[in-house]
Nucleic acid binder design. Structure first.
Lengths: 208, 208
DNA sequence: CGTTAGTTTGAGGCAGATCAACTTTGGTGG
DNA sequence: CCACCAAAGTTGATCTGCCTCAAACTAACG
């Protein structure tokens, strides 16, 4: 059994609290002590970290059925990022102690979690290296495809895209304009439509 | 009990192979399938990932008593990086299956590993954000202090420092020259001596 | 003492950040 | 339903940190 399934079960059994958030609301803040694991019932949650210079960076996203808050809980550290609702969101809060004892008694659950963390770590490390050399074109292209395909229901702002791919609003806008000139995408007001997914992905590959 | 202790025990019990490497030797390569966990008996091992453009990036380091190879093993993925001996190195290789069954029977061991991975993930994510804005000065300063204090016995080359802090050999050398002008460090041939640790650390803090 | 690995320096260029002024969008309440 | 206003988007000018490249020098090791 996977942890998300188990958490869903807990939610059904009412061993939980339900909380509602609207866009921009904060679920927890950097430095808080973890007490719960969170399971998204509906909506969208973003994990944002504040850089020394004050810019917000979007680290990870959690949609319906995803759980979060586990990293800090397992590390026994305080949160290293803020969890913010990007849309009106409904969340199950499962007390950490329930989770801990479940892990103790169910190796399958633990094993699943180990695998999850190990994969996340791999992704994070590879991404750090990729980003160091990838230009803004490929970072924006990748971000665009990921955000639109994985969380297509959300109306992504230029600011959110910028904070996800580690750039600035101005630069993202200029990049999108360039993409539109090429016919890779089209923009109608705030809406962005991907026209040529293949061409966008090619940007990441063609590293001279 | 921590995993490193357990692995040490396994080493003593001879449930292992011992292998020796000299500087530059490869312990495993990106894409290989994990079969062992590795425990460093002596020497120094670096995990390096090859960027799309062909530059080597030093991700993590493992000295005497540290284990590595666990991330890919737990993720059930092939290796995402190369493990290279940075000095003459002696390593215990413990078959992965031994480890897996030990984890199954010892929750304490597993719990320790979960915590380790969760902390590494936090570090990796925070570092990605920090690096996006930190200039070369602060990156080199941080790298210098970490490498010298944590692995002081190793003669670090400019290339190793560059690959650890995501820069180039030329830039690292110019930065070190600047530091020397300021009196933060002094250089004698290839040797670097930190003179003012405090001033170097201040570079990371003073983000305008 | 030759050869390789490591270090140094300078010139030149460019991607992308910054800043500031401006326009558009779309939701809200009157 | 319209007017308004805050939030979101757009554009151009400017600036600079760091990479690139190339050529020479120096240390270390067999």
């Amino acid at each position: 059994m996977q942890l998300s399934e188990w958490l869903t079960g807990q939610a059904d059994d009412s061993l939980h609290t339900i909380r509602e958030f609207k866009r921009g609301d904060r679920i927890y803040s950097t430095g808080d002590t973890p007490e719960y694991l969170y399971l998204v019932s509906s909506g969208l949650v973003g994990l944002t970290i504040l850089s020394p210079a004050g810019a917000e960076h979007l680290l990870r996203l959690f949609g319906r059925g995803s759980y979060f808050g586990h990293r800090s809980f397992l590390a026994q550290e305080t949160y290293h990022a803020d969890a913010i609702a990007l849309e009106p969101t409904r969340i199950y809060c499962v007390p950490g102690e329930f989770v801990r004892s479940a892990l103790k008694n169910d190796f399958q659950l633990t094993s699943d979690l180990l695998q999850q963390l190990a994969r996340d770590l791999g992704r994070a490390e590879r991404q750090r290296v990729d980003w160091l050399e990838a230009d803004v074109n490929s970072r924006v292209a990748q971000a665009l495809i990921y955000l639109k395909e994985r969380y297509g229901q959300h109306r992504w702002t230029r600011a959110e895209i910028a904070s996800f791919c580690g750039s600035t609003v101005s630069t993202v806008i200029k990049t999108l304009a360039r993409f539109e000139d090429q016919g890779w995408i089209s923009q109608q007001g705030r809406e962005i439509i991907v026209r040529d997914r293949h061409a966008l992905l090619a940007l990441s590959a063609e590293d001279s």
